[in-house]
Design a protein around this nucleic acid. Structure first.
Lengths: 217, 217
DNA sequence: ATATTTTTTTAGACAAGCCTAAATTTCTAC
DNA sequence: GTAGAAATTTAGGCTTGTCTAAAAAAATAT
């Protein structure tokens, strides 16, 4: 049975390694976990001895198949709880992250099965991120950050980065919500800010914001 | 902010002290927490220094007003989650205790407010135990364990003791559920077993079982 | 009233997870 | 290729919550 700290490290390693190709470096993990490099070294030794990650001294870590499956279980729980909070308890999508960080560690396979059923087996969480199924399968839709597209692009918002509460409040206010149509009218060469159409409204957004909006190809 | 262990000790002390009159002894607490007396002594020193309990060496502990209020917040969360699990996720009442033991430690006042609203502000949990309100007020209905009553008694089941999963399965099977009418037909002097009417059915129950059924006076 | 038993506390140790400071390894510049 | 910088690991220590064994206090029995 994984401890709370072990689950959090594993999840962070999984997220930082993205598709599992890159090595996750000690300092990157320390940053992400808001802790010190020395603490990270301790923990990766432990996770490595338990075969959740593979570790080459000084060169970083990677999740093993076993570790990935565990990480996906935690992510599944996190995203199901976020969906519950928004759909059933009327939380706004910028309020759910912290609570879900706690709820994701509740140990009860039955609870998660029942919750999934209660929510109608949702495919994605409120931010558009896919919810892994009970076997750890995850269906990722192809998507790109909006800042990498050029004038004339038309598509649909697939997801938004859910890291920052202020960003989420802003995105909600301008209607940048997964499922919505979006059109890129013009892009300023100088700062890569852009004008887009959302809900039949023209609005300007900065490059910083556009990086956090993920759209269909 | 109380740690998980501190919350669990405080809750156990509150439950063992019943109405707050009795002193809770170190060994009783060690039994209830499934730990050793020495560990209990350590923890009660900590809780005492934080003013959640009053402690007289060798004579046991009692919750302070501050401690009682904290304990009731945890109990409120526990009972709201149990209600959620049964009402919304179709758990049976013998399955909810362990999961609620975990969920009761989630820290989010907003979550509990929203959950309470979602459940329609329930007065009791599935076992009939009253749910404290947001201010820690708890409305206890007067009740007695069935084994203390005599032939001819008629009343209503107020609550059942929720400690044991097998007991709960049995009570469910015979229909001994809070709200149901119950009649005491006869009581055997030798072993205090009794015959009762529940749902128009006559059944025999042992003293052990009758102690766990709480009824109106 | 004192001896024995029971209960509780103290003392000292351990694991998990974190820290700082120092040592080591790798990377980067020339 | 080597010196200095940057990243990582090691060493040793701290806190929380647990334990066992020993000491101390309280309860009980005669």
């Amino acid at each position: 049975m994984l401890s709370l700290a072990e689950e959090n490290y594993l999840k962070a390693i999984y997220h930082l390694s993205e598709d599992g190709t890159k090595d996750v470096l000690t300092n990157a993990l320390a940053d992400s976990m808001q802790t010190k490099a020395a603490s990270v070294t301790d923990m990766i030794k432990k996770l490595s001895s338990k075969k959740f990650i593979s570790y080459k001294k000084y060169y970083g870590v990677n999740v093993t198949a076993k570790g990935k499956s565990q990480a996906l279980q935690v992510i599944r729980k996190h995203r199901l709880w976020e969906t519950f909070l928004v759909q059933k308890l009327d939380f706004t999508w910028d309020e759910v992250h912290e609570v879900a960080e706690q709820l994701e560690h509740i140990k009860s396979p039955r609870l998660i099965e029942k919750l999934d059923e209660f929510l109608g087996y949702p495919a994605t969480d409120p931010h558009g991120d896919p919810i892994p199924d009970g076997n750890g399968k995850i269906k990722t839709k192809p998507h790109l950050p909006l800042d990498q597209l050029s004038e004339g692009y038309r598509g649909i918002i697939v997801a938004v980065k859910d890291s920052d509460s202020d960003l989420l409040k802003y995105l909600d206010r301008i209607g940048a919500i997964p499922g919505k149509k979006i059109q890129l009218i013009s892009k300023e060469a100088y700062d890569n800010s852009m004008e887009v159409i959302l809900d039949n409204h023209k609005i300007f957004i900065s490059k910083e914001v556009s990086k956090n909006i993920l759209v269909t190809e």
